[in-house]
């Protein structure tokens, strides 16, 4: 018998890298459907990563069936199972959201924050966000402001 292999398979590692790379690329898209596919791919990549974390593949981890040295680690498999279930549920929810978005808007593009744009535009125009009663109406220039001030001694100064 050859000694048990402990290192995980390189193929799995390469597949993990490829899945996550493709997934991240798709995540950067505007269309929610593509984002969902990206999430599924990334999720599967991470699940495979968990399997890799468990070490090399081995026999079924049942006492009496496999030599303990050659057992595969069951814990990562249980974790992957949990993660798969979670990803499935959330994917279904996201698909429903994409469909609803298509129902409402005729497309499923992830949209920008509108209020953010509004605040930025107002700032670019250098306009006050709102008017309030305390501010009052400011005169345009210094001359006008001076003209508005009622001067009690105006006659003496002789401003004809």
């Amino acid at each position: 018998m050859s000694p048990p292999v402990t290192a995980p398979s390189v193929t799995l590692v390469i597949v993990v890298a490829a899945l996550i790379a493709v997934g991240v690329y798709l995540l950067l898209e505007r269309s929610l459907t593509r984002v969902i596919i990206g999430l599924i791919l990334t999720g599967n990549g991470v699940n495979l990563l968990l399997l890799v974390a468990g070490g090399a593949a081995g026999g079924p981890p049942i006492v009496g069936m496999t030599d303990p040295e050659r057992m595969s680690d069951p814990l990562p498999q249980a974790m992957v199972l949990t993660a798969i279930v979670i990803t499935l549920g959330v994917t279904a929810f996201l698909l429903a959201m994409a469909y609803r978005s298509w129902q409402l808007n005729g497309h499923d593009e992830v949209q920008d924050d509108l209020e953010d744009r509004r605040v930025a535009r107002r700032a670019a125009l250098d306009r006050a966000a709102y008017t309030d009663a305390d501010v009052g109406t400011e005169p345009e220039s210094l001359d006008e402001a001076a003209a508005e001030v009622h001067d009690e001694t105006g006659d003496v100064g002789g401003r004809e």
Binding site: V35, L39, N47, L49, L50, A53, F93, M97
Partner: peptide
């Protein structure tokens, strides 16, 4: 949802490592 999912995936990766 997308941002939260992304953070969950990061967390899961961290757990694996």
């Amino acid at each position: 949802v997308v941002v939260s999912l992304l953070s969950s995936l990061l967390f899961l990766t961290a757990i694996g490592v």
